[in-house]
């Protein structure tokens, strides 16, 4: 677990001081991935670097597994925190195997054990050792370099990993692949991860939770649905709107059909539709395209965080006139209909 407690960072002399990070407090729970997001200059990278003490906080405390990082041996602390940076930061004069095996070597591991570990890690990041171990970084593509960077960070099997814009410098296709791989890897290795990114879609995709920073302050931390349903401020709403404008980014939550109406027991449905019928407990019991249309009892529902593609696929498969969308607490938010699920796509 990584815990930040009222952390502040001021750069420069008192006269021209820049308050880069102001009173930031949040936690990354064991096994959780939190993505730090914000515009440039928001203090997100500084916040990350204070965890492994590449920057020292001006005030406040940072705890890793309950221990104040400031009281720990700097080198031991850093080796217990995997660190991945943009473009991998590989040592150009060392081979892939040497890059990955460097920390184990510094830790005095025997050569055999290092070799086995390097092979294991290369396999984990899908780079066959026999083809890649002896290469130098400049003989690798950007995506391959980044995989090696991840493997290197995992060399000592740290329980925590810090990632600073790990996929930032890659082309969209490679980035998409690596994000996919990251999710697969995360489920296999079960690390506590703090990841900085400026790509909101990436943050929502990779993070269990997202922490949004602005001008040194933590504005909001939560899931995508939290951000969408309960934005902490107009800034958050605006930020989401301007950073998630691609039609492919939309979630079920964003695709609710305004014409869909919820009909409680005893209410008259009236004209128009589609309709969502609730039972006395407030649970969705049926949907229909209109009052005089056939009812579909006990219909399946969608999670608010379902992606547009999933929603469309589901609608096609079930051939329902509307799918209820539930938030994380199971409350009905509205309905996605074939019409609303396609909304916005024509524009592009």
């Amino acid at each position: 677990m990584i815990e930040l407690d009222r952390v502040c960072k001021v750069f420069g002399a008192p006269a021209g001081a820049v308050r880069a990070v102001e009173q930031v407090s949040f936690r990354v729970e064991d096994g959780e991935t939190v993505c730090l997001i914000g515009t440039s200059g928001s203090g997100k990278t500084t916040t990350l670097k204070m965890v492994n003490r590449l920057e020292e906080p001006t005030s406040g405390r940072i705890l890793v597994d309950g221990r104040d990082v400031h009281t720990q041996d700097l080198i031991r602390l850093r080796r217990s925190l995997g660190y991945v940076i943009q473009k991998g930061g590989l040592f150009p004069h060392r081979t892939v195997a040497q890059n990955i095996g460097l920390l184990p070597r510094l830790e005095g591991w025997p050569a055999d054990r290092i070799r086995v570990r390097v092979e294991e890690l290369l396999e984990l990041v899908s780079l066959p050792a026999e083809r890649f171990a002896k290469r130098h970084p400049h003989e690798l593509s950007g995506g391959q370099q980044q995989r090696v960077g991840v493997a290197r960070a995992l060399a000592l099997d740290p329980s925590h990993i810090l990632m600073d814009e790990p996929f930032g410098a890659l082309d969209p296709l490679t980035r998409d692949n690596l994000q996919e791989e990251f999710l697969r890897l995360k489920s296999r290795v079960g690390k506590t991860i703090l990841l900085v990114t400026h790509d909101l879609a990436e943050a929502f995709r990779l993070g269990d939770r997202v922490a949004l920073m602005h001008e040194g302050r933590l504005v909001q931390i939560g899931t995508r649905v939290d951000f969408r349903l309960r934005p902490a401020s107009p800034f958050v709403e605006e930020f989401l709107r301007s950073h998630l404008d691609g039609p492919g980014e939309a979630l079920a939550l964003d695709l609710l059909d305004p014409e869909a109406r919820i009909v409680r027991p005893g209410q008259e449905p009236g004209p128009g539709g589609p309709l969502l019928f609730l039972d006395p407990e407030g649970v969705l019991e049926a949907t229909a395209a209109g009052a005089d249309q056939p009812r579909f009892e006990n219909p399946p529902t969608l999670a608010a965080s379902a992606q547009r593609a999933a929603a469309l696929e589901f609608l096609l498969k079930t051939r329902l006139p509307a799918l209820g969308v539930l938030d994380e607490q199971g409350r009905l938010l509205g309905a996605v209909t074939p019409k609303s699920a396609l909304r916005g796509l024509q524009r592009t």
């Binding site: 080796r79 930061g89 920390l103 290197r152 960070a153």
Partner: peptide, 8 residues
């Protein structure tokens, strides 16, 4: 930065 951050 990578070298320092990884604990060299």
């Amino acid at each position: 930065e990578a070298a320092r951050g990884m604990g060299m």
